[in-house]
Amino acid sequence: MFKFFLFFTLSVSALLADDSARLEKANTLFEKASKAALSDPDKSKKFYKEAILNYQFLIDEQGYSSPELFTNTGNAYFFSGDLGLAIVNYQKALRLEPGNSDVLHNLKFVRAQVIDELPESMTEKVVRTIFFWHSWSLECRIVFFALFNLVLWSLLGLNHFKTIPRFTQYVFSSLFICLLMGTSLGVTISGWDNGVDGVITEKEVIARQGNGHIYEPAFMTPLHSGTEFSILDSRENWLYVELLDGSKCWLPKQSLTFID
């Protein structure tokens, strides 16, 4: 029994050491690629691709799943010129750690590089204006929530010793703000406000009005790598999707990569 335990422990340690070495190798390749980018773009791209292979091995084969790993993979994809897969990996990182400011920053920047311009729909604009605090950073909302949570419980505590004028008013105001911030935090953490199910990862794809090439294109121009969507329906090899501006179309599955 002891021998088995020893063998098991040593095997696990060896595997972990191997994975750590692979991660270090991937990180080193990334650094090499960044240095080569200043002198030899071809070599730099090669290093980025090797770094991606190593990161991807840890994710796909070894089953690791952490925001840092996905962010690194996304960064490598971005620098190697693949915006679509960069966005996929940033979105995966956000699934694990919603509101991570670094990932959000990277995602915002890479989205700005995507060819397809999808202006915000009117409904989204209205919702964003009404629930303006939801666009604050996660940290900012947590601080607000903490502050008013503290005020709420402090009021309840003080009330045992002292009569506080407008006590009920203050308590309900604090409670209300706590509820607003708490709900917003809950929505962010659960990912309800990020309805992206997938990203176009093919360089160019023609969106159709129906689930087949027989249908006319949905837009006058093709869609490009990096355009995000949420899935509405699925029929064989086609998906009915909604783009970030609210427009709907059918896309062939082989051109897409899914977040989950």
Binding site: F30, S66, E68, T71, N106, F109
Partner: peptide, 23 residues
């Protein structure tokens, strides 16, 4: 503009907490 740096920490191989300690 630009994207933020990579993480070089081996903590990338750990499972991430879903909710931050701050929250």
């Amino acid at each position: 503009e630009g994207i933020h740096h990579n993480s070089l920490s081996l903590a990338a191989l750990k499972r991430q907490r879903l909710v931050s300690p701050l929250l």
